[in-house]
Computed example of a mutant assay.
Amino acid sequence: MVFVFDAELWLWDARRMDTWTFVTVPAEASEQIRELAAGLPRGFGSVRVEVTMGGTTWKTSIFPGSGADGCYVLPVKKAVRKAEQIDVGDVTTTEIALIDL
């Protein structure tokens, strides 16, 4: 299953030394993904995905966010942000395809 959405990159400061950049998967898509991935024994509730942003495609995992909305979050690594010339606060079109289901 493939999901395409526009989302803003945001910064999560987990620790003083590390910063992580994410996009949030919309609520409706997150709900569908949760239903499809139900019962999969993956660490931290992660779901394997193939992601495309602009001309960059990579494999990673999405994770349940800590917010009350229950949306998944997608980490966007520095190499992708650099290749696509995007940064925190920018809105980007993101395509995620579920894999390993």
Rank of each mutant, 00 (worst) to 15 (best):
T94V: 15
D100G: 07
L98F: 07
R42I: 14
E84S: 02
P41T: 02
F63N: 03
M53C: 06
V80N: 04
S66N: 05
K78D: 11
K82T: 15
V91S: 12
V88S: 07
G55C: 09
V76P: 00
R42D: 02
I86S: 05
G43Y: 03
A83D: 08
F63P: 07
V76C: 07
L98P: 06
V91N: 06
T94E: 09
S46C: 08
V49R: 06
G70M: 11
Q85G: 06
V80R: 01
S46M: 10
A83F: 04
T93S: 07
Y72S: 01
L98K: 11
G89L: 11
V47I: 10
K77D: 08
V49D: 00
T92L: 05
W58S: 12
I86G: 02
A97D: 12
L98T: 01
L74N: 00
I99D: 02
P75K: 07
K78R: 10
T56Y: 06
S66H: 15
E50C: 02
E84G: 09
L101G: 13
G43A: 12
G67I: 08
K59E: 09
F44M: 09
G70H: 13
G43P: 02
I96W: 06
E50I: 15
E95W: 04
T60Q: 11
P41D: 11
V80S: 08
I86H: 07
V88H: 04
D69R: 12
R81M: 06
G70Q: 08
M53R: 12
C71A: 07
